[in-house]
Write a protein that binds this DNA or RNA. Structure first.
Lengths: 334, 334
DNA sequence: CTGTTAGCGCATTCAC
DNA sequence: GTGAATGCGCTAACAG
């Protein structure tokens, strides 16, 4: 358990070169003679040398790691495929790159401020922040402190770099599908009001309805959870019994909406048509298959990661925003 | 962006003490006079000093980080609440402890061996490994190399420390519920055969059936995914049309099972009774509410994290296994 | 209780 | 192309 790992010194000695040459050979091999390179390579292999990251970090003041911050104060903690998608995407984008992924999850006991303090502490080379809520105060804490890319537009996005899907447009597309299907009493089960994604989707829903001259009163928050959506739907149907279409702000919530509709003795899509949002696998889980809006999450995450890497390499890049376009995914719920 | 962070030297100078004293004051304050402590404290606060982790790691040869390894070769990557639960649990158990969580996700491009190599490289103080598949070869790579706790029994568990739920017993409980409800043709939609959790649950199912003198032929693998489960159920019902009960090895898969049953024109529970496994939120997503087996995942994860911390503190602890007991969660699917 | 002295392992000047 | 020297920021002996 305590067999000391070989150091660069030992490699150099074994290869019959100086530590400096060994170091160069290991880091790209610039200005190293072929034979020295070979000698070092074999020595490295023979001894099983692995550079000590701490020492390297100390010497270069680069840590070889980035933080992934998930700000989720609720107990619920995104029982959504969203999180999984982000993890998978970031991890995938980091393949082949020698960067560690440090995971920071903010919650009640570990508030966002303390996260931010850690980020500012200079322990990582950069950060990707997602699932941000209003009041997290994360924005100011990282602005100018370290390279950061947000996934999902932050509330206070002045001078910040982020990638997002056009949630407003997505809401519009979804709602228009319902309108085009002849529905005239279209409600929405929205996400929590402290996230920009929720607000933007609501805005799109509202805009499409207004343009069509329809009422925008039927809105209830489902908090991005199954149970929350079920309860929201119950309230919605109580307030607006004539509802014949619902834009559900996430596919996960559609499960709850479906249940409430069934409990009310109504059918999808005959009585009430449904359009969801995300298409991250959950749409397959509903019967009938949900019509939904594709959220290009994986592309967003990959962009975010690439942008972060650029920003780590060149710290003077101006803030940049990337907005991807959502698309309709037909199903059988309209 | 490049405003240098204060160093311990500067704190010491500001506090009018030596670097050593400043260091002691910051690390617990042992053998430090009250006034020196105060002086250092205020200096730290005033300068906004944050210890450099790399330097500290280099000096102490402790990295202040543990790895969470998720071994998921499939593209699917656990679209299951399981992963979320593990992340949340580990993150929660680390609260207040100054340990970073480094996330390692193995997949096709980044095979488990390379993970293991990293782990052996001495960049983290310990590791929690979960979602292990047969052939990952992770076991040998970490054995004796660094403190490690597995969540879910590894295949080759000789001398390894792990926590697990008693999957065999869970399978038995689930199957007995079906038997007690009068079902006599009980199949199972299982997980992938390269995970111990799958095999153990199958074993429990088989044992309960054998004891009751019932057939154990009706088994199909659903691979722990919704779609896989749907297809498995189609096959199962084709092979055994008389099936009147199914033990579904995960609640997530139950969604697919449900769909296949509905597509076959049969009803739950009247025609076919269902018992799932996990109770990690997904059971709420099915109609009727799924009868399932509680998987004490959060407790498992918390145990695993605590055990790891102990093992990091005392590297001579003998291997240890913790097996938690699953319990029945009544629903309306039986 | 305190300060002085050495490293931890590596990258990187700078002469050669 | 190579090696000797220096420092990254911190902790840990040691002597006082």
């Amino acid at each position: 358990m305590t067999d000391r790992r070989p150091t660069l010194d030992e490699v150099a000695k074994a290869a019959g070169v100086s530590r400096a040459t060994a170091s160069r050979a290991i880091n790209g091999g610039l200005r190293v003679s072929p034979q020295a390179q070979r000698a070092v390579d074999t020595a490295v292999k023979r001894l099983g040398f692995v550079p000590n990251r701490a020492a390297r970090a100390l010497a270069t003041s680069q840590h070889g790691s980035i933080a992934l911050v998930i700000s989720e104060p609720d107990e619920l903690f995104l029982s959504d495929p969203f999180l999984t998608g982000v993890l998978r995407g970031v991890s995938g984008a980091l393949e082949g790159i020698d960067l560690q992924l440090v995971l920071l999850i903010a919650n009640r006991n570990r508030p966002a401020e303390r996260m931010a303090q850690f980020l500012g502490g200079g322990h990582v080379d950069g950060a990707i922040i997602t699932s941000l809520h209003r009041g997290d105060m994360m924005e100011d804490q990282v602005r100018g402190l370290l390279p950061t890319v947000f996934i999902g537009r932050p509330f206070d996005h002045e001078g910040l770099t982020y990638v997002d899907v056009d949630n407003d447009k997505g809401g519009q597309i979804a709602t228009r599908v319902l309108i085009d299907a002849g529905r005239r009493h279209i409600g929405t089960v929205s996400g929590p009001s402290d996230m920009t994604a929720s607000l933007d989707r609501i805005a799109g829903w509202r805009r499409a309805l207004s343009e069509a001259g329809l009422s925008t009163d039927a809105i209830e928050s489902g908090n991005f959870t199954i149970k929350g959506a079920e309860e929201a739907t119950v309230r919605l149907l109580a307030r607006f019994p004539e509802t014949d279409g619902i834009f559900v702000a996430s596919d996960t919530m559609a499960i709850g909406v479906n249940r409430a509709i069934a409990a009310a003795g109504r059918r999808v899509p005959q009585d009430i048509a449904l359009v969801g949002f995300d298409n991250l696998g959950m749409a397959d889980a509903t019967t009938p298959r949900l019509t939904t809006i594709n959220n290009p999450l994986l592309r967003m995450v990959e962009s975010a990661t690439k942008m972060l890497l650029e920003r780590i390499a060149r710290r003077d890049l101006p803030a940049e925003q990337v907005i991807l376009t959502p698309t309709l995914v037909p199903g059988e719920s309209v």
